[in-house]
Design a binder for these strands. Structure first.
Lengths: 226, 226
DNA sequence: CTTTGGTTTATGTGCAGACATAATAGCGTT
DNA sequence: AACGCTATTATGTCTGCACATAAACCAAAG
């Protein structure tokens, strides 16, 4: 019984064995379907999957070829912070450090692409079993918030957003930086320690929702399988 | 004309509009297919796609429900370093700092899970338009290498591997660290600067292939869309 | 009351055939 | 030689049907 996963495996092994070297144009779906004795749809499923993971490149009419410079594609899970803490077997806690309307600094405005005037500025310290885990520095578009405001000391802005506001698109980036005095104090680490920083920016179809910057405690690793 | 992308869009908007709140069990494929006037396979395609991106959770017999704590899934591209440098409009260069058989340190052995005895230790400095871009510290399983060795001063081990050795599985992780004196010297930066570090470990079906650690120059960002 | 085992049911995957679409390749024109 | 149109063709997607499989549910046995 040849399922699409078997086809995928077979194709992969042909690539690995150099039967189909890098850059080669491989046979069309019709031909492969016949060879393997399956429907074309099954071959299509297998090849699409391989294309998604970066092993193959497909173009209409041009055919399917083995990627010359394979760009590996890895999938990252971006969980809610509470889930991340609990997944480590720690008890989640949070401390609201700041929550006030203010004018966002220039870099934030630049990322949002427009000036919304004053925005809600929230700083939260997320705790894992009482120890500082992440410092969250967030700017929220007030237009999307209800009145009165949610109690961000009870539920993190992070979680409130995923539950109440649905976003259309966004981007995320990771970097290493020296901890600012502010963040270092919150996390209880020496200033200028190397910290892992995540920056995220999310958009509703029409308006920006939020810009957020997470400073992770030292030792934080982001990992996934290839 | 209702394509699977239209179905996906419609389902997404129902989730966003809270017509189907978080955690809800949504109608079965059969029902949706009838409602939208498409085949069940089309609905399946749309829902599978949404499940892959973390918006839905599907289980046989249990049905499909809106994810209660959405775990966003982002896809990272892991390009070959040369491609990464050239994508920035810079000229790629490399300098081989070390290439010798040696006994890997304990952490490396631990990640590989077995002791292969001596391995090939390669240190490479990758340059972008003459400036240090990445320091690569790599340990290779000698069993997979040809004799004589490839000229790693001409082609980076990175590229040689993707072209000549096909791997089955691997993992990758990212962290922030203080630059070691060694790496700092190679990159021409002050020691203990915060640097972005990538660690990768790849396996052939049977044996380990390589362990590698990339220390990126300050300012490096890893980014993607959500 | 707990465990075991069968039944039911929603999703997962398969097949064959069809049409849609994009992009190349070749032709003809200027 | 350069340009633009058309025919060709491989992939992308849809339909309608079928069977496989996992898991929840329920009922009977211990």
């Amino acid at each position: 019984m040849a399922g699409w996963e078997d086809i995928r495996t077979e194709v992969l092994s042909r690539i690995r064995s150099k039967a189909w070297p890098l850059g080669t144009l491989i046979p069309g779906e019709e031909a492969l379907a016949q060879e393997f004795g399956v429907a074309r749809a099954t071959v299509n499923r297998a090849l699409s999957e391989l294309a998604r993971s970066g092993v193959l490149e497909r173009k209409r009419k041009a055919g399917t070829r083995v990627a010359a410079l394979p760009v590996r594609k890895a999938t990252l899970d971006i969980p809610v912070i509470r889930a991340e803490v609990e997944a480590r077997g720690a008890v989640y806690g949070l401390r609201l450090l700041r929550c006030e309307m203010a004018t966002p600094p220039l870099p934030v405005l630049a990322r949002l692409g427009q000036d919304l005037g004053q925005m809600l500025h929230i700083e939260t310290l997320h705790l894992a079993s009482g120890r500082g885990f992440v410092v969250e520095d967030r700017w929220l578009n007030p237009a999307i918030l209800p009145n009165p405001l949610p109690d961000f000391a009870a539920i993190s802005a992070n979680e409130w957003l995923v539950a109440h506001v649905s976003f259309a698109s966004g981007d995320i980036s990771f970097a290493a930086e020296a901890a600012s005095p502010n963040a270092a104090a919150a996390l209880g680490i020496p200033p200028a320690t190397a910290v892992f920083v995540t920056e995220r920016c999310t958009w509703a179809p029409d308006a920006p929702i939020t810009w957020v910057r997470l400073v992770h405690a030292p030792g934080y690793r982001l990992s996934t399988v290839l």
